[in-house]
Amino acid sequence: MLKVEGLTKIFNPGTINEKTALDDVSLHLKPGDFVTVIGGNGAGKSTLLNAVAGVYRPEMGSIYLDGKRIDRLAEHKRAKDLGRVFQDPLMGTAADMEIQENLALALRRGKRRGLGWGVTAREKVAFREKLATLGLGLEDRMSVKVRLLSGGQRQALTLLMAILKAPKLLLLDEHTAALDPKTARQVLALSDHFIQDLGLTCMMVTHNMRDAIAFGNRLIMMSQGRVILDVEGDEKKLLTVEQLVKLFSSRSGEEVNNDRMLLG
C-alpha cells in the first residue's frame, strides 16, 4: 500500500537552523492498516505526513503508493489518492465558499476541471445525504458559508471532504487537537466510523496516548525524526499508557515531559 523507504527531510540545510526532521524513516503500510502515530513535539510526525502528501520534498528516500512512486510528484498530483485533515480547522476548507461548494471541490479531486457547473443539482442531493451522516444538522445549511461554522463543524466537514472519494490513504494530522474535548471525541468517533465503513488505510497523528491505543490496529512512535516503536495487532491492543511512557523513555532516551502527550 504505502511504502516509505529511507526518507530523510532536512529543514534549512547548511544554516545555523538546520534540523533533521526525518532521519532515514522506513515504513510499510498494508491495505486497511489504521496506524496511529505518536511522539513529542518535533518528533517528525507531521513532517512524515506532509512528505507523503507532497508539501515537502524529501532530501533522500522514496515513497510508493500502491506500487507507484510518488515522491517526485507535485502536491496537487498526489491529491487524487489522498484524503487529508489538518490540525488547524481553518486549513481544510475555503471559508468564503458554501458548504456544498467545498464538498464539490473535494468531489472533483483527481478530475480535470472544466466549464461544467461547480456544483450540480444531483450532487446537492448526494451531499445532503452525506452531511446527514455527520449528525450535525449541516445538511440543512448547505448554502451557508463555511466561515460561519464552528471549529468542530469545519473539521467534520473537512473529514467528509477527505473521505468523499474513498482515498487510497487518509492522512489525519492531529485533526482533533484544536477542538474542545467533547467535539474532539465526536470527530474522532466519526473518523473511526468512516475508516471502518470504507475500509480505508489511514495514518493518524495524535498527541494523545490513550487515543493512540484505543484507535487503529497499529501504533508507531517517533522521536527525533526516527520511528522508535512499531507495534500492531494484539500486542498493540494490550498496551497501556504506562507501558507506552516507559517504552518512550527507554527507546528515545528522553523523559516524557510533554503534558499534551500524556493526557487523555
Partner: peptide, 28 residues
C-alpha cells in the same frame, strides 16, 4: 457564470485557501 463553473470555483477557492485547494488536487 464563469465563477460558478468548476474552473471558476477552483480560482475562487485559491484566493480563499490555496493550501486546501492543492489538497483537493488543483494546481494553484
Amino acid at each position: 457564470w464563469f465563477f460558478g463553473t468548476e474552473v471558476g470555483s477552483a480560482i475562487r477557492a485559491t484566493g480563499n485557501n490555496p493550501f486546501m485547494v492543492r489538497a483537493q488536487g488543483v494546481n494553484t
